[in-house]
Design a binder for these strands. Structure first.
Length: 259
DNA sequence: ATGACTCGCAACGCGAGA
């Protein structure tokens, strides 16, 4: 089972790229973030015509997440538990072929002296609590998406550029580490020890051309999912296209469980 | 270098992103 995650920075602007990715990479599951459209405006028919089912949790203008899959999608939550009144569409959880997956768009949190940073950290705490709860089922769990956190110095072209940024601040990095301490595995990093592998390059200042990026899109696997992990990578292709998203897809492959 | 680029919006510049 191949699962990919991609912050598309507007599903309407990126639909041709998404359809090309589905046709080329042929993932079994694709988790999308930053749809920037309302749920009813999600281009479900075009996705279905490409052979995928789709469920979206959107809102006007901002945020929005979706789950696409070749097979049936059993929706389990369209908000992160513990934030039922949260108007921001940042979490969608589903069961697909016996694997619990969540499409996650964690708040950016900048600037750090605003309530946005507090919101990010509070959201992270709720995610950690829910991630811990999910371990109790023993079901394989994949929590994947745009975490808006640079885990460490190997995941950024120059940490000095990110001092006092919400993506690099120690509070954000520790919040991510706390989920790992619970027993989750960073699927990409555990199989790809090479430093400076990025998933995001800013549109500005020629960051893509100079390969000055950051790794902020992550796939966190529960132990039962990590036991089946056979491969993981970053697909840089979509980032090099015309009218690209500033993020590029990350994927992992889970072996079929023994019968 | 308070820069740069790309989205949605009911806009004709702004907020948000990271």
């Amino acid at each position: 089972m191949r699962i990919a995650t991609w912050n598309v920075n507007s599903i309407k602007a990126r639909l041709p790229h998404v359809l090309d990715f589905l046709a080329g990479a042929k993932p079994d599951v694709l988790l999308l973030q930053e749809l920037k459209c309302q749920t009813e405006d999600f281009p479900r028919l075009e996705i279905e015509a490409a052979g995928y089912r789709a469920v979206a949790a959107g809102q006007k203008s901002y945020n929005g997440v979706a789950v696409l899959a070749r097979g049936p999608i059993e929706v389990l939550a369209d908000r992160l538990p513990g934030s039922r009144d949260d108007p921001q569409a940042r979490y969608l959880e589903a069961r697909i072929d016996g694997v619990r997956v969540a499409s996650i768009y964690l708040p950016n949190g900048n600037p750090i002296d605003s309530d946005k940073f507090a919101y990010k950290l509070a959201w992270f705490e709720r995610l950690e609590r829910h991630a811990a709860h999910l371990l109790e089922s023993g079901e394989p769990v994949v929590l994947a998406g745009d975490y808006n956190v640079i885990p460490g110095p190997d995941d950024v072209y120059d940490p000095a550029d990110w001092v006092n940024d919400a993506l690099w601040r120690i509070e954000s990095r520790n919040a991510l580490r706390r989920i790992l301490w619970r027993g989750y595995v960073d699927a990409f990093r555990v199989l790809n020890p090479l430093p400076h592998q990025y998933t995001f390059w800013d549109y500005q200042a020629g960051r893509w051309q100079r390969n000055e990026g950051i790794r902020i899109d992550h796939m966190l696997l529960s132990p039962q999912a990590a036991d089946r992990l056979v491969a993981s990578g970053i697909d840089r292709g979509p980032r090099g296209r015309e009218k690209a998203s500033d993020h590029t897809p990350v994927w992992c492959e889970l072996a079929t469980p023994a019968p």
